[in-house]
Design a protein around this nucleic acid. Structure first.
Lengths: 153, 153
DNA sequence: TGTATATAGTTTAATATCGAACTATATGGT
DNA sequence: ACCATATAGTTCGATATTAAACTATATACA
């Protein structure tokens, strides 16, 4: 499966566009988020709601592909706002466990609510079938980059 | 063109994946770049090579969707390394013009060279036809987000 | 001509991120 | 049981980014 020059240029352009879309969408999200709610904070809350809480900081960091240090920072903010509780793991003295508070769930729901109109606006202006078809390609690209970054996992 | 719930969830997941791919690919790029060359610096050099130099800082900032302040920073680094020259515009006292130096072109070529194997590696591990088909969807999404951010332009 | 407004670029304070060094706890091989 | 190594989390220094305030120049219009 040798890649030709044209493939390389396409891939380069693809990654370039992805970088810009990521930046633009992050901006659009922050714009509509309730005051004080940042994108990283929301992503963590949403992750805990969707996949269940009681997870360790490390597993959350790996799921969203940031460093442990970045997660320490984000969890600190969320804890400071009372959106999560972080407690030592009784079984493993090195670990902690993250659980959602009532306020945390409410904040996540409010953020989802605020996101709705923006998402609807975007969805209304693009050809959704194209997006739906493109999703698997993005996901496989993510997996490839994932493995290349951390081959052992 | 009303969007249904499923469309919104797909779009949300799509943007989520894009954010992670952007982060992973930025990391992969920085990893192989020659010492001292950062991704923003490379992107600016590449832009100037491909579309011609003599551009203003503002136009470059707009092309890559960063603020003027960010561009001031990046151009400062590039100028400090002797990769570009920034001179006042004779016609417009507010403006400046950015031109590439010999060293700047060489640095860009070296970066492209260093990027080759990494891109080839990635291209060899994914299904390129899917990427090629997905590109237009990403591009149209970029345009939509672009317009929503700055409706007048 | 003069004044209000728009545009180009810089600076500043704040934030998120990274990688590396560090602490503490667990695990595995001898 | 012990010691080497691996893992979880924090901290630190550096960097890129943003929004907003600021300076300087240009343009439009009255």
């Amino acid at each position: 499966m040798t890649a030709n020059e044209s493939d390389l240029q396409t891939l380069f352009r693809f990654l370039n566009e992805i970088g810009i879309v990521a930046q633009l969408s992050a901006h659009a999200f922050e714009k509509v988020m309730p005051a004080g709610m940042t994108l990283p904070q929301f992503v963590v809350l949403n992750h805990l709601v969707r996949l269940g809480d009681g997870r360790t900081p490390l597993s959350i960091a790996q799921a969203m592909q940031v460093t442990k240090g970045a997660m320490t920072n984000t969890l600190g903010h969320l804890e400071g706002k009372g959106f999560i509780a972080v407690v030592p793991d009784a079984r493993d003295g090195r670990s902690k466990r993250v659980s959602l508070t009532q306020e945390g769930r409410a904040a996540r729901d409010a953020a989802i609510e605020a996101l709705g109109p923006e998402l609807r606006g975007i969805a209304g202006e693009i050809a959704m079938p194209g997006i739906i078809e493109a999703l698997p390609a993005i996901e496989s690209l993510r997996k490839v980059l994932d493995v290349r970054r951390n081959p052992k996992a």
